[in-house]
Design a protein around this nucleic acid. Structure first.
Lengths: 104, 104, 104, 104
DNA sequence: ACCGTGGTTAGCTTTC
DNA sequence: GAAAGCTAACCACGGT
């Protein structure tokens, strides 16, 4: 039933009691600036991420260049990752058992 | 000429009984070490990527904390990204034209 | 670069060699009927899937009702699934090695 | 598929010698069997679900094969689903009203 | 009772 | 063009 309605919901600030309207379009007032700031931060991080992904591709390419099989490498890495995750989950399961059984 | 680098200097098969190997897995020798190095580099980069993704999630969380709608933000960013890509493609097209016409 | 354009692209039939174009715009024509048929099939399958998911939830609920910890159960099942997948992937990796090394 | 059914991994102590009967603690006993049964039922249902998902993919593939745009189809179906849910919710609301007013 | 969290599912990208 | 891996949206659960 409940449906969020507001896509730009927020007052211009958490504790918005500063009455001076910035003149410059209050859609895009303090809240707008804050939003812009968040957006920028995220986009910056996304850029870094993209760069990293690029780097990864390059490493694969380099490996391929000296004769390794990329697909195999990927599989290997995936397997290693699964190991890691599985161990982590197994640990969690153990904790869960302990909790379920009343051993804090 | 059988060049073991150009093909795949693979470890002997899983069913091997090569257990008592000296420290530095000489299965595959130099190539094996090289492979290990690639793997490590990739896994390191993947870790960084994961950390970045974590950061991004945190920024979204912070934005949410002050009242912004995350889903909307995502859409916004995605839209901006599309714009960027579109422009980039347009630029590429322009370069192509220039090249085709002899303008370096 | 390439971007698909047509959202309702299709000719009115796979083996469309019947040249007589129906003149009357095929939106809702043979192709439309065919599309409707696909949609129905998918929606039917989705329904069955939803029913199955419901069943699963019920089993969990029943288990919970007799005292088992649902979260633990989920983890357990997830772990078992990981085992299965990991084995499958390990096999694939082996095949990959063999192929990379030239062993059909 | 899965063979080790009685796998009830952790629970009883790591070095549990199964010679001694389970005393009061029912690890691996009746409760264990019951748990195994639940697990099996769920895994069976999950398998069916996976099969269904496979079927759905195949229908999409078939549709694509005769020229329909899968992405568009997905959107369409999603839209229809939203409609359905909306109507269902509206009906529920109506029921609620009726109940509130004393109309069974 | 709501929010936050984690897990699941679906969609998209990229690879082969 | 198909298959897979990755990412993002969704949903149900438990905590506060």
């Amino acid at each position: 039933m409940s449906e969020n309605v507001a896509s730009f919901p927020v007052a211009d600030s958490p504790s918005a009691h500063d009455n001076e309207q910035p003149k410059t379009q209050d859609v895009g007032g303090v809240a707008g600036q804050r939003l812009a700031s968040f957006i920028e931060r995220i986009e910056r991080l996304e850029e870094e991420k993209a760069a990293l992904m690029e780097d990864i591709k390059e490493v694969y390419a380099e490996a391929k260049g000296v004769g390794f099989d990329v697909k195999t490498m990927r599989k290997l890495i995936s397997l290693r990752k699964m190991d890691t995750e599985k161990r982590r989950e197994a640990d969690e399961l153990l904790e869960l058992y302990k909790a379920a059984v009343g051993l804090a």
